[in-house]
Amino acid sequence: MSGILRRAQRGGVVAAVVVAAALLGGCAGSGGAGAPVGSSSPAVAEGVSPPAPTSPSPTPSPAPSGAPVPPARGEVPARLTVPALGLDEELIDLGIGTDGTMEVPQDFSRVGWFTGGGRAGGIGPTVLAGHVDSAVGPAVFFDLGLLQAGDRFSVTDVAGAVFDYEVYRAEDFPKDEFPTGEVFGALLDDEVRLITCTGLFDESVGHYKDNRVVFAARVA
């Protein structure tokens, strides 16, 4: 839903309604022959600039002897603050489920971080996930689709240190083509991924078809 709202803001109500009407005509009778909203090839959000992170490197400079120095691994993240969305949320731990997918918060009002990924202030992507809605209404990441390139937010670690990140990319991905490496893959930079659902809700399985992923790099 957040992606839908985002498109509405940028594309205009009239255009969006026309598109939706066309989709209704194309899908209702054909069983989905027309491409559903947000469930075809990945679509980069309009107005998102090419990645240009200027994150401070968490990798220490080589020692004077020239010997390599282990890169900083960071600390456990404790809080996500997104002023543009009015969010200030404590984080809960999320792991990997028995089916191999990322665990998600059982409480639809909570945001969680993937404990097997990066950590605030260290190398690698710190991956945070929250629901766009529950079974009864909007949830904590309902507005995530509004974040655009240039927006900033912060992550506070358990020691109280605050790290600022800037969005450089926001993109929707079909779940069956989820870019595991781009989202969870190792990095020498300090980055954050914010994940929620978007696109069409498939009532037959009880899930949205797509994920919205916001990519952000550390700036301070």
Binding site: I96, G116, H131, V136, G137, T196, C197, G206, Y208
Partner: peptide, 23 residues
């Protein structure tokens, strides 16, 4: 060199459909 670290596969199920149903 580096150690393998497991990461999730597939999409992330972060929606219950309530907003879609309500509308």
């Amino acid at each position: 060199r580096g150690q393998l670290s497991q990461v999730p596969v597939g999409g992330v199920q972060t929606g219950g459909g309530g907003a879609a149903s309500a509308l």
